[in-house]
Design a protein around this nucleic acid. Structure first.
Lengths: 136, 136
DNA sequence: AGTATTTTGGTACTTTAGTATGACTTCAAA
DNA sequence: TTTGAAGTCATACTAAAGTACCAAAATACT
């Protein structure tokens, strides 16, 4: 973040400098007007692309939008959803139990209910279906 | 796609026009040089952002890019990779065997090898790791 | 207070998944 | 031609996952 601010500050400084040089060059007749305008255009074009890339990457990568409506449609309870998320992390029933301070039996019950609600035969299939529904 | 070409064509035309007007205005002394340069800079800046947004959205949405280099780094063989993909589809070993016309034993061998190569304890964990590596 | 849902957990059982080991085949490269 | 990697399959085993059924709490809602 600090790095980003520094880069942008330097960029703005460089552009202002360029701007001044351009005006001076045109007025003093050292450079052709079209040429200066073209340079300015290209530079700002590149800057536009660069800035956009920086900002877009954050928003697009964060596009893990979860379909909460679908979750309630499927009548998946909060606890079951926690278990589903843990499954997607690759945890075993025992590991999920330890993580949530529950017994393995309870996790098995939740998983079984999840499989019915997601119409899946296995936890891996449940993951695939959950991804299709965009609920994980 | 046709729409995109049309928009870009019009855009380029408009820019060329703007370019000519700018040169004329400066030479005839109707406008101040700094002002024209500023306008050009802003317009190209916006165009840069716009074009980048258009092109990036396609690449990012298509970002199901598979890291083939990582696959060979992990020494995952083609057959093993097929099995990995089948696992991500939520299939059981038996189902994978039927799909690939192999015995369940063979699938178990492949899965076992995959788990070692991906350093996973379970197939669900293998999926999670494979997604991190962007190989599925 | 009473009812419904959620959450929790147990037992007993079946099915899948995964490990270990060995063996045979194919096919390409040294 | 031998060497090695890849692919195939089997047996025997252990571990994990999943089912069925039940039951008691804890919460939420009326």
């Amino acid at each position: 973040m600090k790095k980003t601010i520094l880069v942008f500050s330097l960029l703005i400084l460089a552009l202002i400098l360029l701007f001044q040089i351009s005006s001076y060059s045109i007025n003093s007749g050292n450079l052709k007007t079209e040429f200066v305008i073209a340079i300015i255009a290209i530079i700002f074009f590149i800057v536009g692309i660069y800035i956009n890339k920086k900002s877009l990457h954050k928003t697009v990568v964060d596009s893990k939008v979860i379909n909460h409506q679908k979750i309630s449609e499927l009548e998946i309870t909060p606890r079951e959803y926690e278990v589903l998320q843990s499954i997607s992390e690759g945890l075993s029933n025992k590991e999920i139990a330890d993580k949530l301070f529950l017994s393995e039996s309870t996790i098995k019950t939740h998983v079984s209910n999840l499989l019915v609600k997601l119409n899946a035969k296995r936890r891996t299939q449940a993951l695939q279906i959950a991804k299709e529904y965009q609920i994980i």
